[in-house]
Design a protein around this nucleic acid. Structure first.
Lengths: 159, 159
DNA sequence: GAATAAAATGTTATATTATAACATTACTAT
DNA sequence: ATAGTAATGTTATAATATAACATTTTATTC
């Protein structure tokens, strides 16, 4: 949970297709539990987001959808909004882009390590960081609800 | 440095005009030291950014400039880019907006407490947070260069 | 299983944020 | 004074995101 090596280095169980398949499976289970509809568009967008371990822009998703038929921006943004609300994708504010959530189902903000060279992203959920933030905020009398933590640098492969 | 109450509560030395005046003065000194030109446009944009302790959008700055004469987007973005490079303003990624830097001259990323109610922003520069981030990144074999930390919640006045 | 309500998607237009490219002006330094 | 550099002006357009309303699909109730 605290380490991101496996995310940077390889898809653990033998191939990236498995990442996608797992993400879809988890999404199906979660949506069923919550009585939300995991429609074709939502499934397809989630697959596209998981296509790489890199953030993908909404208009890149749109382009991919347009290869397969008609599509317009609202379609993509609606699907992305839904997936975000379900905790299945994160939006990366500093990139205006989206990435599959590494720990779906558990509501959390996440912290992101983003490689400036290969653009690969790894999600952390480090209590160390969120505690430091909570404590600093508290000390200022600020009630923290949500945190954006995006860390740019070089991943283990590129450094 | 670690506490943000004063930023949330009041402009310490008797009035917000002083915040602006101080920011301009520091900017002048810094630019002179670094042999950079602190032109009228740059000065005016910095004043506008400091007009409130709230992030301001580039197009809000533009509107203000247009009250005073002709102006187009590149003018604003160039000035904001310059001010960022000089460490005089920060860009808040999650808001697409800009805010005056509380500790100009010292290169730093800063951490931002943003009130969801009154939109006021306070800058922290908490070693506690940046250390936690550095350590977590290190543990993942990631070489951190830059960090975006934006914390949404309620400020002391609004909570 | 038809009627209705609710949710999702389609469609068109437009808002918002940001940059590219090239012309002009202003400042700096010999 | 003059060349060189930096800054700004200007026009157009790229990139990201949403509003508003029509249509279709799904779920629910009778």
């Amino acid at each position: 949970m605290e380490h991101a090596e496996k995310t940077f280095f390889s898809c653990n169980k033998g191939g990236h297709q498995i990442c996608i398949a797992e993400a879809i499976h988890v999404a199906e289970v979660l949506c069923r539990q919550r009585k939300q509809r995991f429609t074709n568009i939502r499934r397809r967008v989630l697959q596209l987001v998981w296509h790489q371990h890199k953030p993908i822009g909404a208009y890149q998703v749109l382009e991919a959808l347009q290869q397969e038929g008609r599509a317009a921006p609202p379609t993509v943004y609606r699907a992305l909004d839904f997936l975000q609300q379900m905790g299945l994708v994160h939006r990366i504010a500093s990139l205006n882009a989206y990435v599959g959530c590494a720990h779906p189902g558990i509501p959390h903000d996440g912290q992101f390590l983003i490689c400036e060279s290969c653009k690969t992203l790894a999600e952390l959920d480090a209590a160390e960081i969120s505690n430091a933030i909570q404590q600093s905020a508290d000390r200022s009398g600020f009630k923290a609800h949500r945190q954006t933590v995006e860390i740019m640098g070089l991943c283990p492969r590129c450094r």
